[in-house]
């Protein structure tokens, strides 16, 4: 048995392990170095941001950029916590609904054969290929017809029916839920509703944990765009963009904003991803 980095598996050569590790390491460096640059910019005083030759780490790290940001925040029209709450409501409400609504449909499409199922799934996949930019106007008309403009629902309801979640969950349910398991449950008289909650969802946990990461991160960056006009309903990215729009003197503040915006999606990612990896050890169904 090998100790250390590797998951023990049969049929592995040392050379292969080494090559893979080099690849991983190079990829990780390429991914992370620019981000370290970006994050260290947030801690640089203004005079260090425009040095030649440029410096990698801040020489005199400072929290000034963050203090400036907080001062700018406290000058905002509505309390800044309001923007944070708006974004949290949209991100959590949109993600929770999307996971449930999309998984319900994905279960039926993956495991039930009924007239129209392939057609419906085909439409969902095709819809991924249509540029969103031109559907904005009809979308706005529909949202306003239902009186949802300038409410959270204008963002949350369309988020529930994004194509991504259905497509992703269908693949997971097909791959992770054996038909025999469903048959056994049906023979014991479980209803489809019960099967969905007791068997399907627990057993494709890696799937919906991944979907939560993806959906949350998209909604977290939502600016509200064309749908939200009241200042007290505007989102955090919108408010922060307004602050950055102040020009070059705020380059450092911009970096600070970037860091703050990234923290929450990273936390969501870390919590979920560690669970994705944990589930492997515990799932005993197959």
């Amino acid at each position: 048995m090998r100790v250390g980095l590797w998951n023990k598996k049969p049929a592995r050569s040392f050379g292969g392990d080494l090559a893979i590790f080099i690849f991983l390491f190079a990829g990780a460096l390429f991914s992370v170095l620019p981000l370290i640059y970006a994050v260290s910019n947030a801690f640089k005083p203004l005079n260090e941001l425009f040095l030649f030759p440029p410096v990698f780490f801040a020489r005199n790290p400072t929290l000034d950029n963050f203090f400036d940001l907080f001062v700018l925040m406290s000058n905002s029209w509505v309390p800044f916590s309001r923007y944070v709450m708006n974004t949290l409501v949209i991100s959590i409400g949109g993600t929770a609904g999307h996971v449930i609504v999309a998984s319900l449909a994905a279960y039926a499409l993956a495991k039930h054969k009924f007239p129209g199922s392939n057609f419906f799934f085909g439409i969902v996949v095709l819809s991924l290929m249509f540029a969103r930019e031109v559907t904005n106007i009809p979308n706005y008309l529909i949202v306003s017809r239902f009186g949802l403009v300038d409410t959270y629902w204008a963002i949350i309801l369309p988020a529930w029916a994004m194509s991504l979640g259905l497509f992703l969950m269908k693949q997971f349910i097909e791959a992770m839920i054996p038909d025999a398991l469903l048959e056994a449950a049906r023979i014991e008289g479980a209803s489809e509703w019960k099967i969905f909650w007791r068997i399907v969802m627990p057993n494709c946990k890696p799937g919906w944990l991944t979907l939560i990461i993806l959906s949350f991160q998209g909604l977290w960056a939502e600016t509200g765009g064309q749908f939200i006009y009241s200042e007290q309903l505007k989102t955090l990215p919108y408010a922060l963009n307004q602050i950055i729009a102040g020009g070059i003197a705020r380059a450092g503040v911009g970096a600070a904003v970037g860091v703050i915006m990234m923290i929450v999606p990273i936390i969501v990612f870390v919590v979920n991803q560690s669970n994705v990896i944990d589930t492997m050890g515990t799932s005993g169904i197959k």
Binding site: S31, L35, A38, Q217, V257, G258, M261, I266
Partner: peptide, 11 residues
Amino acid sequence: APSISGALFMI
């Protein structure tokens, strides 16, 4: 991380 870097990609 890069794919959730948001505005930081402007680096």
